[in-house]
Design a protein around this nucleic acid. Structure first.
Length: 421
RNA sequence: GGAAAGAUGCCAGAGUGGUUGAAUGGAACAGUCUCGAAAACUGUCUUAGUCGCAAGGCUAACGAGGGUUCGAAUCCCUCUCUUUCCGCCA
């Protein structure tokens, strides 16, 4: 949610930035300004009214003390009409505040200056590409076939238990999940992140804070009986840990492992083969709560961290700076990481690292005190480090040899086995 | 699931209708003192909205939402949460 003061003071610039995101409803910006002006004018009159009421109340108190009961009673009359007016004004103010918020939540975050213009994923900017694309042997297979061959995970069994997109990992496949989670967590802890294990369901306030609500209900599983949402990412509970707080000691660095639940309504076809797209998956997420003047340095640091992981896993990867049209609603700048999956011969997104600037902190009221002891909104950032299924897909496909799948050296202390046979 | 108690500022903790945005203590910050530190003393010390160039003013908030009243942290109603006890249970 953009800050209304920013919209008010820089309307044209805001609109210009939103255009980069291909946001069509620029009229919402003007509407917000109109309603905001109305809201303030109402507040002005209301405050004056309440002030008068307060003065009268004090006078009556004084008169009672002096025993002037008749005069006090007379004074009470004066309050009646003011009170009536105040009630109406209050109702009107509340209506305007609500209307303003309804508009503000529909306006996406303004993209950073470095965000390339573009509408489709093809227009994302490839920042860099690292690592050799492996040349596989003639009988190389995609990961879903390898999974069958070595009995690593079973999607059909998941269908029986739950439905499509809920894999059952088995044997070395299951161990590989645990190994990757531990490997990712340890790397983040070494980089100064505090490990947390968050709840896997959140309430509506939390879902609103990070921007899942309103409008994106359809992407989350919902427990109606208790009004809980299954988390689509640990970003939601972890970022909300600082909701409504005034922090010191920035940046705050958190890392969390959690399962992630995504309905992925409407996606099907070749893209969802194997582990390419599932409804439940494991992910290690890094989150930073940063000083607004430092947040882009923090973003670079997070990008470096993710890169380090991919290098240790010996996977070819590339980093994309997302264009305006491909960015998420709340992000100001996003880097996507893709690994090459050699048997499928395609790039798979395994991480998304974003700076939300004050988009989330304004919703969550997360602040810190600046040098002048004034409260200011923090910047929030998060990134996958990393999401497991596609890492597993790429790991299996890229590291396969004729008689098995090799495990990268960095991961061997965690898997204990060094080859899947 | 049943019963009871409670929810006040960074923390502890007063306050049961009229200068209480909130006593007191602690913490924190600044200053005096000191070679430095401690102690002592002095001061500062909630947040948000709004008006103002500023100084500063006004309004709101004592778990949340309603109500009574000229006036509520204080009275009434609803809800939420916490703690303790009982039951159930990993």
């Amino acid at each position: 949610m953009l800050e209304i003061a920013n919209i008010r003071n820089n309307a044209e610039e805001v609109k210009g930035r939103l255009a980069v995101k291909n946001f069509k409803e620029l009229n919402l910006v003007d509407e917000a300004i109109v309603i905001d002006a109305k809201r303030r004018s109402i507040q002005l009159v209301l405050d004056e009214n309440l002030n008068k009421q307060n003065i009268i109340a004090k006078e009556i108190g004084e008169l009672f003390k002096q025993g002037k009961k008749t005069e006090a009673d007379a004074r009470k009359q004066d309050s009646a009409s003011l009170k009536e007016q105040s009630k109406e004004l209050e109702a009107e103010l509340a209506k305007n505040e609500e209307a303003l918020k309804d508009i503000l939540v529909r306006i996406p975050n303004t993209p950073h200056k470095s965000v390339p213009v573009g509408k489709t994923p093809e227009e994302n900017e490839v920042v860099k590409q690292v690592g050799e694309i492996p040349a596989l042997h003639a009988a190389a297979q995609p990961h879903w076939d390898l999974a069958k061959k070595y009995d690593l995970f079973d999607l059909e069994l998941g269908v029986k238990l739950t439905g499509a997109g809920f894999p059952v990992y088995k044997g070395k496949g299951a161990k590989l999940q645990r190994a990757l989670v531990a490997f990712f967590l340890d790397n983040a802890i070494d980089a100064g992140y505090l490990e947390v294990i968050p709840p896997h369901m959140v309430n509506a306030d939390s879902a609103f804070g990070t921007g899942q609500l309103p409008d994106k209900e359809g992407q989350m599983y919902y427990i109606g009986l208790d009004q809980f949402y299954m988390i689509p990412t640990a970003e939601v509970p972890v970022t909300n840990m600082v909701r409504d707080e005034i922090l010191d000691g920035l940046p705050k660095k958190f890392v969390a492992y959690s399962p992630c639940f995504r309905r992925e309504a409407g996606s099907y076809g070749k893209d969802v083969r194997g582990l390419n797209r599932v409804h439940q998956f494991e992910k290690v997420e890094i989150v930073q709560i940063a000083h607004p003047d430092k947040s882009y340095e923090v973003l670079e640091e997070m990008v470096k961290h993710v890169e380090g992981l991919l290098q240790k896993l010996e996977l070819p990867y590339r980093i994309l700076r997302l264009c305006g049209g491909d960015m998420s609603f709340g992000s100001a700048l996003t880097y996507d990481f893709e690994v090459y999956s050699a048997a499928q011969k395609r790039w798979l997104e395994v991480s998304s690292v974003s700076n939300f600037e004050t988009f989330q902190s304004n919703r969550m009221k997360v602040r810190f005190r600046d040098e002048l002891k004034k409260t200011r909104l923090v910047h929030t950032l998060n990134g996958s480090a990393l999401a497991l299924p596609r890492i597993v897909a790429s790991l299996l496909e890229n590291h396969q040899v004729e008689d098995g799948v090799n495990i990268p050296a960095a991961l061997q202390p965690y898997t204990v086995y060094n080859k899947i046979v």
